[in-house]
């Protein structure tokens, strides 16, 4: 691979990594809130992105963005109250099955809506874009669009905000207490259900943000929208045992960058970016996972 291509690929990898990271923040927050592997996260992102595209046809994109974030939060909250909260005592296996089934259900709903709104192909390009299509930014000779660069910027901002929320605020403290021991937290006066609901609403809003930013960059939607990206976010989250945001973010960006750097190789390797990067991150996760889980158990599912 030419050395000249390393930097352009790295810049593109940052956008992919930013998307994985943004999705991963939601995955980690859901796990920290109630111990769920939130596989349905992609479905929430897809539904929110669909809402954004439709709304943006009738109102300013900023308003559509806010409403889409609200729809994501509402969808996620509804899922928690109607489905996930009823399975708090269930085994992890049962929770995973329900989460997968919920994700598939959201895809089906999304597919129905996409077909009936004539949006199977994403609708006219440019509708619902957060930035003008011509906005292109050049960094050290490599260029990317504003839509692309918004993803890593948003991911880092969200990461910083979540870190602050979890470790520097009363809400974060309450969330940690509620997820560690809901009964004790309740006895201590922590409104566990309300705190967990707030966490799930935030998770939904994060899914919506990822969906909206992504659809702004690609202008197309399908029922399985962002599912593959969410799988990568889950892989990245695995490196931090679903509780360590910092590790997740680093892994997500490394994954995104490695995937793009692989394109620089000759066939068939340049087609293996998904599989090879995923295998790499999985290996890292396997070797570090047991220690992480052990630590998290000692800490009561919290770090």
């Amino acid at each position: 691979m030419s050395v000249d291509l390393i930097w352009p690929f790295l810049l593109i990898g940052l956008t992919a990594g930013g998307l994985y990271s943004l999705l991963g923040c939601g995955v980690v927050l859901a796990y920290r809130a109630s111990g769920y592997l939130h596989i349905a996260h992609a479905g929430v992102a897809m539904v929110s992105a669909l809402a954004f595209v439709l709304l943006a046809r009738h109102m300013p994109v900023a308003v559509a963005l806010v409403l889409a974030l609200g729809i994501g939060a509402a969808t996620s909250t509804a899922l928690y109250h109607w489905v996930f909260a009823r399975l708090e005592e269930a085994s992890m296996a049962a929770k995973v099955v329900v989460s997968v089934a919920t994700g598939v259900g959201l895809q089906a709903v999304g597919g129905f809506l996409l077909i009936n709104f004539g949006l199977l192909d994403g609708g006219p390009r440019g509708s619902g874009s957060l930035f003008p299509e011509s906005t292109r930014i050049t960094i050290f000779g490599a260029s990317a669009t504003a839509q692309q660069l918004a993803l890593p910027v948003a991911a880092l901002l969200v990461f910083g905000a979540l870190q602050y929320l979890l470790h520097r605020t009363d809400l974060g403290l309450a969330l940690r207490a509620s997820s560690q021991n809901p009964l004790s937290a309740s006895l201590a006066g922590v409104p566990s259900r309300r705190v967990t609901t707030a966490a799930w609403a935030t998770t939904g809003a994060l899914a919506a943000l990822a969906g909206v930013l992504s659809v702004s960059a690609t202008s197309f939607l399908i029922p399985t929208y962002l599912f593959a990206e969410t799988v990568r976010a889950l892989a990245a989250s695995l490196t931090g045992a679903f509780i360590d945001l910092k590790r997740m973010v680093i892994a997500a960006f490394v994954l995104g960058i490695l995937e793009q750097e692989l394109v620089g190789f000759s066939p068939p390797w340049n087609a293996m970016r998904g599989a090879l990067s995923f295998a790499l991150i999985t290996l890292v996760a396997i070797f570090g996972l047991s220690r992480q889980l052990e630590r998290s158990e000692r800490a009561g599912a919290m770090t």
């Binding site: 030419s2 593109i12 490599a142 599912f227 793009q260 066939p267 340049n270 293996m272 998904g274």
Partner: peptide, 22 residues
Amino acid sequence: EEAVSYDATMTNQSSQVVKMRA
């Protein structure tokens, strides 16, 4: 030559374009 796998990665081909152009 750019071989692209038959999965979601096809939707992001920015790196392939950089390479073809270069």
